[in-house]
Design a protein around this nucleic acid. Sequence first.
DNA 1: GTGCGGATTCTTTTT
DNA 2: GAATCCGCAC
Length: 598
Amino acid sequence: MDAPRGIPAMEKFDELMNGLDARQRQAVTHKGGPLAVIAGPGTGKTRVLTMRVCYLVCFRGVDPSRVLAITFTNQAAGEIRERLRSLLPRDTSPPRVTTFHQWALDFLKGLPGREDFNPVDEAGARDLLRQAASRTNMDPRAFYRMAEEISLARQHWPLSALEEDAERVLDEYVSLLRKYHLWDYDDLILEAAEVLTGDKDLRDQVRGSLPHVLVDEFQDVSPAQYRLVRCLAQAASEITVIGDPDQAIYGFRGASPEFLREFQRDFHPVTTLRLKSCYRCPQVVLDAAQGVLNRDKGLESRVGQGKKIVFRSFRHPSAEAGWVADTIEKTAGGLSFDAINFGRAGMDETMPLDSIAVLFRARVLGNEVSDALARRGIPFQRADRRDPLAELGLLPAHHLLEAARDRNRDYHLGRLSRLLDKAKHERIWFFLQRVSGLNGADLLEETATFLGLERDSAQMMILKRFASEAGEAASLALFCRNEADLLDIKVEAVRLMSLHAAKGLEFPVVFLIGCDQGILPWEGVPVDEEQRLFYVGLTRAARRLYLSASGRKSLLGRRLAGGFSPFLRAIPSHLLEEKEQKASKYRKPNKPRQRSLF
DNA sequence: GTGCGGATTCTTTTT
DNA sequence: GAATCCGCAC
């Protein structure tokens, strides 16, 4: 075995190792055979993962290029990369940390004959699917359903069966993708798994080069992703998977906590370690959360008992939203005249706005809170991630640029025919002629002029940054996706997001709104996954947790029965502090738009 | 700014 | 099938 490398980081590493508890240390230093780490909320999952990588490289002398850490999101990958950078000695080349999709993309692009394939953005994929559906003359209303079914089927391995017409549409869709040399996100995983499954030599080669694979958030792997994991690691390797079956909330896209069990079978014998010390949530929160899952022991808090969970109920969502906004105002230390007037009775400490999160089951449920916060002038940020390119209004710019550079021109022109108005679309050939041979800032300038972008618009800012920072070969789509992450964070604002989006995050103060019958659990879906979703919501809270029922009467055209979420009953009552609402306040629903009348 | 009609979305969503 | 969004005409 090599001598330990990188002496400068050693002291720090020792110090960090001493900061770990016994179980964490065991996971970090495990040697010999596959390892599964079951890591409940706040038990130091990411820390164990990064420290283990560091341990492998620095102490076991593993070549960093033979270590691969896989995550689900770019953000998670970025965080791990960042932590590794500070842990590993400067002169060590950092190991590869990437997402499933990025790994698959790089792998596929390295294969002969596919160098000029590219991933298609979400809007583009939908467009092609629509094209495929239009050829078989189907009811346009059924399209939405079918799109979901097709995508779900493609998460499975092998592909699950589809209805006959869906099958036809899928075939047509895939041939369109291939014609334009495009992969959609599902393709990346499927293709990579397919290629590796069918080519033993290649599989052995990949496996041989990667004795150490680590997979984060393992409970979220889809069947196809699990297949890929099996291709990457042989049973005898030191593969490490980290996850928490109690936080499995992506069943609707094919994930299943089952794969943790399957992993233990397929990679037998697996060493399984459970992390039980929670460094995030107070005991009160843990007990409540475990009550929801019908467990009574398991996680132990290392941050104390904590305050009771506040529960309040309302007769109307706008009343709930008003209360949330008022409570936030007080918690944040008074931002308006009112807050100063009312004082901060009952508030023990003040919090910066970005330490506060409002969580909800479905996107629309955040609207009233957005309105209430806007009315009070409290800055907030909704983390409703969608296609950043479309959101920024840069879809036409992207396709124009790609067409101008003659990369897959047919495809991009096809998309532009739907995106541009008639007048512009008629001038498109003139535009292409005009910009031929141009590149860099000149090309962007012409594109912006053609589209009529305002000089100081957000779009222009991004285009300028794109021109100066990105290379000539980069696509605007990719640039925006990476930028969007950077632009999002760091703002001092209350965070509003869905329960799903909150997974993996923590906030000192958490509001979980809409704890009503019919919302949590959502009607018509498996209850156990909803339970876990509620569990995830509760365990985001590091200090204070507020639950509320909105009294909402209807949702998306569906009538609600009324009454509280049954999950609340599963919380032992001594953990709850039930506050009665004052009837006079928080009553009248008024839309902020009406204010413009005065 | 208003109003109309057609398109699109609809629970959760990353890539 | 209802709600919302978007482009377009006024």
